[in-house]
Amino acid sequence: MTTKKILLHSFLLITGLLTLLPFIWMISASFMADGHASVYPPRFIPDSFTTMQYESLFSRLNVARNLFNSLFVSILVTGVSLFINSMAGYAFAKYRFRGRNKIFNLLLSSMIIPSQVTMLPLFLMLKYMGLINTYLAILIPGMANIFGIFLIRQYALSIPDSIIESARIDGAGDFQIYSRIILPLLKPILVTLTIFTFMGTWNDFLWPLISLTDSNMYTLPVALSSLMREHAKDPELMMAGSVITIVPVLIVFLVLQKHYIKGIMLGSVKG
């Protein structure tokens, strides 16, 4: 039994480290001077530690601006979409109105349509509205999210009607009930959605690539991919750029891990 245990744990440890090896090498190479990562055998610890790659990213290549763009649009989309989705999810769960189920089912079934289908017309619409290459180009398509509405509705269904009714008897208006009573009760699912939306927006690539045309407006993934075209021979610089892109989402994930895992489970329940 014990040998089995040791074998099992060694296997898990080795495969776990192999899974993390790309990140270990990435971090190590990002602290190397030019050319020091292009050696055989590869180094997993910098031979001479330097932050020159980060310095040139921030001073010469203006990555600070891209970092700001990514942070700003991710926070903006998360805030706005959480507000809009939570109102809609609550309404689908707790109000009865004509066509409720029909609308909800229509929304759910339209989730099968891949986002690539909408990208061309969306680009044209935003172009005629003069919004291409602005933060609004990222915000607008992300403002409402069917999956988010679905998750909030499922969660809100479990809120007892009696809470809402007693607030109503106390004279609370509809919006007051939503903001003072429902939102606090929805907190667990809102935290889950926050991390999903933030990370989804941060990691998104195709739409920002299409809708942001000026390097000053690029989010980090778009900036990184365009940097790659010019610096394909500079692994150290590119690794520093990758670290800057990955670390913020990684921190968000590590802090809110539990909620993220829970969100995956909630998402898979519908299947």
């Binding site: 993390l20 990691n203 778009v222 990955i246």
Partner: peptide
């Protein structure tokens, strides 16, 4: 956590990293 970390990281960034991992001479 070890197995899960790649999931949450930015696809473009890991594609950049893997491009160098696949380097024929110096790749890990």
């Amino acid at each position: 956590l070890f197995y899960f970390i790649p999931v949450v990281t930015t696809l473009v960034a890991v594609a950049v990293v893997w491009r160098f991992i696949y380097h024929p001479r110096f790749g890990i």
